[in-house]
């Protein structure tokens, strides 16, 4: 029993740690590539959390082999994680494509500067999050 809790504790802590690291990176960094790394960490943490849910003490992978009688782990989180991983890959690929194009167009990947550039281009200026009158030349 204690061993089970030990394994679960390590796995859960790993998942929570990855999630927190990811969110920390998302909140604090301004460089887009770092932010995307944060996203990847966050997704990895959530996936690890899902996998941990499937864990049962002394259980084997849910694949039937002749003569095997041991209990099997919960198959549903495994299927969910497979789906979530592929979705994550798709989103990351799109993010990288957008980053490439953004860099080609603006020459910077700093989100704060990018926000200013967007506002300048569209004719809306943001000061501390609130739009103000744009001075006419």
């Amino acid at each position: 029993m204690t061993e089970t809790i030990g394994i679960q504790l390590v796995s859960y802590s790993g998942a929570m740690g990855l999630i927190l690291l990811g969110i920390f990176a998302l909140v604090n960094y301004e460089h887009l590539i770092r932010v995307i790394f944060g996203l990847i960490l966050l997704e990895a943490g959530v996936n690890l959390f899902l996998i941990t849910l499937a864990y049962r003490a002394d259980a084997v992978a849910p694949i039937m082999i002749e003569g095997q009688t041991a209990a099997m782990v919960d198959p549903i989180p495994h299927a969910l994680v497979l789906t979530a991983i592929v979705i994550g890959v798709a989103v990351q690929a799109l993010a990288l494509a957008l980053v490439i194009k953004t860099y080609q167009k603006y020459g910077t990947l700093n989100t704060r500067i990018l926000a200013q550039r967007i506002a300048e281009e569209s004719g809306t200026r943001m000061i501390e999050g609130i739009p103000t009158e744009v001075k006419k030349v």
Partner: peptide, 28 residues
């Protein structure tokens, strides 16, 4: 199917798999 994860993925939750293929297609 001997692999029960496959049963979940394609039979019980087949629509999720279709959705996932669609997300990949959307991203592409």
């Amino acid at each position: 199917s001997a692999n029960i994860v496959s049963s979940v993925l394609l039979a019980y939750r087949g629509l999720d798999t279709l959705g996932e293929l669609t997300v990949l297609f959307v991203a592409a």
